[in-house]
Design a protein around this nucleic acid. Sequence first.
DNA 1: AACTCGGGGGT
DNA 2: ACCCCAGAGTT
Length: 345
Amino acid sequence: MPEFSSVSILKSSANALEHWYERNKRNMPWRLTKEPYKIWLSEIILQQTRVEQGLPYYLAFLETFPTVHDLAKAEEDTVLRVWQGLGYYNRARNLHKTAKIISKEHKGVFPVTYDSLLLLPGIGPYTAAAISSICYEEEVPVIDGNVQRLISRHFLVEERIDSGAGSKALRSIAESWIQGRTPSRFNQAMMELGALICSPKSPSCETCPLNETCLALREDKVFKLPKKKAKKAVRERHLIYHVHRFKGKTLLVKRGTDDVWAGLYEWPSEECNATAQKKIKKAFAKKQQFEIKHILSHQHIHALFILHLEALPKKVEGGQEVGWNSLDDYPMSRLMTRFLELYLL
DNA sequence: AACTCGGGGGT
DNA sequence: ACCCCAGAGTT
C-alpha cells in the first residue's frame, strides 16, 4: 500500500465516502431489507448487469417466487422463462440449484458467513462478501467492477487489476479501508460512488467526495486507470435456423450447457461458415427468409432464419413438437424473440 | 492464468 | 465500433 494511505487518511476518506452515500444513494427495493433471500437474489441478478436492467427482473422473481422454497419447487424451465432476456443463463441455473440446497439441506435458512456462502453454486467472492456484509455485518470488502475502478484510482494502483498481483493489491487496500466501518454501509457506498461518480468514461471528479485524497486525480491519471489486459477478438459465427410451422405446430430443441444460451429452447439449427451460408440461402430462395446479425460481447452471430410451411420433419435430434401459440411458455434467447418480432410484424 | 458466458446502454 | 456492467465456473 502507498505510504500516502496512512491510517488517518483511510479513516477520513471512509468518513467522507459514507457521508456522501447517505445523502446521495439511490433508493432501490433491495435496500429496504436485510432478508438474505432478497439480497442473494438481487446480487445474482446484478452480476455483470446494470441496476436499471436488473430491477424489473428482481421484481418479477419476487412476484413469481416469494420465498426460496417457491424457487426450489419450480421447474428449471420456469426459472429460465422468468430470467429470459437477462443473459448468462447459467446464473439462473445456479440460482435454482442453490435454492434447492437452501430449501432442502438447510431447511430454508441461508448460511451466515462468507466462507460458508462461498460453497454454494453461483456464489463467488463478490456475492459471498455482499451477502455476509449486507445481511450480517461481516467485515469483508466487496470487490466488483465499481470498487476496482474506485480503489485503483484513489490509491493509484497501476498494476493490471485483472492480474493476480493487481487483485491482491486491491484486496489488501480494501481490507484496510473497511476496518472499523459499518460493513453494509461502507461496501454499498464504494459501489455507489463507483457507479455514480467514479464512472469509467466521464468521472465527476469536481463533485467527488474523495477528490482531496485521490492520487490518480492528483497525478492526472484518472483516465488511465484502471489498467486491464486487451481483449481478444470476437468470434464470427454463422447459423441457419429452420423454422417449421404447420397446422399450428412447430418444432423446438433445447440447447446444451456447453455453449451460449444454456438450457434455452430454439428452432433446429446448423452452424456453418459464411460461404456455406450463402449457398444455403440460394438453395432455399423460394422460402421466406430473415437475416439477423446478433451481437454478443464475445461473438458476432450471423443468423439466417428459413421458414418451412409444410409438414414437420420427424427425425430431428432432440426435437419436440410445440404448439405455435404456446411458444411464450418456452425460455428463448433474445435472438429468437428478435426473429419472432420480425416475422410477426 | 486464460476462456467462456448475454444483453443493453453509454461514448 | 468499443467499453462496461453489484462475476462465476471451467479448463
